[in-house]
Amino acid sequence: MALMRYAEALNAALREEMTRDPSVFLFGEDIGRYGGVFKVTRGLQEEFGFNRVRDTPISEQAMTAMAVTAAMTGTRPVLEIMYADFMPLTLDALVNQASIYEYIWNGQVKMPFVLRTQGGGGAGAAAQHSKSLDSMVAHIPGIKVVAPSTPADAKGLLKSAIRDDQPVVFLEHKLLYNMRGEVPEGDDVLVPLGAASVTREGTDVSIFATSRMVHESLKAADALAERGISAEVVDLRSLKPLDLNAIKKSIAKTNNAVVVNEGWNFCGYAAEISATIMDFCFDDLDAPVARVTMPDMPIPYSEPLEMAVLPNAEKIVAASLQTLA
C-alpha cells in the first residue's frame, strides 16, 4: 500500500496503463506541457512524448469525435474534458456515435475510449464550473459511467475503464483531488466496473451515495451514530452499470433508503436510483425513499449561498431521521 492523493492515483493509473499498452494515448486541453489544471497528467508528456500526450485547442466537440474515430481504428484514447460543465459539447459524439456504433455495425467495431472529466461544487467556481451532470451521461444506453470517491478506487477504476471495450465516462470531483488515501500497489490491482462498495456497515438505514457525497454520508453516519442510529453507507462507484444486488442486499437489511447525489433533483441520478429501489425492493421498504440532491437551480458564486444549496452531511442526517420517523 502507498499513501497517495486522488490526483496522484489517477496519474499512476495512466502511467501504468500507457506503459502496459502502447495503444493508450491521452489528449485534452492543457494536459501536456502544463500537466492538466488539476495536475492529473503531470510528467506524462515528458515520459511518453508529444505523440502520446497531446494538447488540443478548446474544441470539445471535435475532440470527442476524434476519440470516437481513434477508438474505432484500434487505439485506446483517454480524453480529458476539463470541466463536466462542458460535457454538453461532447453529447453528439456520445449519443449519436460512441454509444451506438458497435450496435449498428453489428459488433464489427469496438469503442474502447475513456472520457475523463471533473465536476462538483464547493470550490467557489460558480454556475459554469461546478455542475454534476451525472444523469445526463448515465441516461445514454451504451455508455458506462464511473465516479470514484477514494484514491484507491480512482486508480483501480481508471485502469479498468481504460481496458474496457466500451466508452466509459469517468467522473472525478474537484474537491477530491487532494484527498489522501492508501492505494494498493501493483499494475494489476483493478476495481471492477459495476461493483458498489459498502463503505460503512449499518442496520437502520442505507445511504446510497456517489463521489464526494460518500464522504458527506460518512460524516452523517457518524452524527447518526451519536443518536443511536446505525447507518450503512454504500458507495455506488459505478453509476452505470449499477450494482443492483448491493442495493437489494442493503435494503433487505435496513428497510430504509436515502439516496445522495450532487446533481440536480429533477430527473436526476438520485431519482433513477429511487425508482429502481421501488421497482426491486418495494416490499422491503418501511418508508418512502428519501433523496438528498442539489435543488433545481444554478449554483451560486457566493460561498454562503453555495454551501446552503449543496447537499451535505447535515441534510443527509435530516433525511435519514425523516425516513426513520
Binding site: 428497510n255 418495494f282 416490499d283 422491503d284 421498504l285 418501511d286 418508508a287
Partner: peptide, 13 residues
C-alpha cells in the same frame, strides 16, 4: 370496508 389503510410496503408484507 373502511378507510384506506396507510402502511409501508414492508409493514403490509
Amino acid at each position: 370496508g373502511g378507510a384506506r389503510v396507510v402502511a409501508t410496503p414492508l409493514a403490509r408484507r
